[in-house]
Design a protein around this nucleic acid. Sequence first.
RNA 1: GUGAGUGUAGCUCAAUUGGCAGAGCACCGGGUUGUGGCCCCGGGGGUCGAGGGUUCAAAUCCCUUCACUCACCCCA
Length: 429
Amino acid sequence: MPRSATIAAVKGFRDVLPEESRRWQALEDAARELFLAYGFGEIRLPILERTELFARSVGETSDIVEKEMYGFTDRDGTSLTLRPEATASVARAYIEDNLGHADAQARLFYIGPMFRRERPQKGRYRQFYQIGAELLGRADPLADAELLLLLARYLERVGAREARLELNSLGDETCRPVYRERLRKFGERHLDVLCPDCHRRLERNPLRLLDCKVEACRQVMADAPVMRDSLCADCAAHLGQLRALLDQERVPYVMNFRIVRGLDYYRRTAFEVVAEGLGAQNAVGAGGRYDGLVAALGGPDVPGVGFALGLDRLGVVASAGALASGPAAVILPLEERAVGPAFALATRLRQQGLSVGLEPAGRSLKALLRSADRRGARLAVILGEEELQVGRATVRDLVRGQDRRQVLTLDAPGPELASAVQALVGADG
RNA sequence: GUGAGUGUAGCUCAAUUGGCAGAGCACCGGGUUGUGGCCCCGGGGGUCGAGGGUUCAAAUCCCUUCACUCACCCCA
């Protein structure tokens, strides 16, 4: 029979296998625990939204909306899109579910997949996972400080030691246009040196001139006007208070006036978390303040601040959950007749919450022990002729290399079996 | 969307001027009765990414195509 063609995963979509998945779980568990301590509750958002939501929040002219979204037309003609980010959904939910009604501030976090049709490369996938937190209804710098403290503590908790926090202020609707104009004028004076990409940026988004990687552009832009000098009094005060609060709690960060955000809705506070070891995609997290977003979506004029962490990237950088552990014991039936009792033993131990492996019969004891060893099991439980006759299994400690012949009574109740195994596992800690 | 690189065993990779497709690791078995790891011996495994062309002969040369990777762009 001819073999049919195999089916591969869609480009940019991948399987997260158990080893990586285990690290992700550690990252997620840490997030749930810590975020709850800071008063954030988990929100589970739909993966599909109306396309209009992103057009109005992320920005009609952003790259994401212009060419990176996965969308389709539903049977009733509605244009739907796989979410490219979650802040827009949180804002939508805030409005739709009246989250500001009982309590003016809403503290929400989410964990889940996002979709963007970019060219895949290291640390960049078309389906990627984010952990994010949003604090709506608060315009004061304390809100920014709380969120950044949460972010810093979380990174510390999961062992993302090389990650560093970079902070900037993008100004607001009064001072940013002024700065943008100053930057444009500066760029126009240096047209001859700037790269073709920067010529384009000059028209569409002059702020992007700041993070061009071409050496000639960098040299020119080193003398460019800095946002800090263009901030209006209110924005400068906001930044100053935020920095004082961060300093008070010893949150490590550096100011980086070149940070620019790709999404249109950011105001004032903007930050990134960058790390080594990720190639060109070195941002593990980013966020900022988005005071106009909820209103732009037709809701009340409610401010907000938030961040998102890339789980795919964080998993590479963080040390949390890195240790694999094998099963406490593996049951080894030496012959066919031992299969039934071996199954029963494994089942009862597993029901007591122990991680227990079970091998099929038909191979030599030597081969069975080798399997148990390679799985990283602590104990091998041997069930052969002798053991069946006396009704007690032999337990071999694979770490110490010691046998305890016929110590495990097969018809003992589950809890008793489990504590006997536990005692053997904990024999030397 | 643009550019570069790579496709050979489960994994990492070799294969000289075109001349029988290999190694390490992994897997399975053995090294006297039921004892793992180290060592020794043996074994199973391949559409050489796919399709076409040149040739007595192609993993190797030519064309086409697909996939993956990295970088630009953009972003978490």
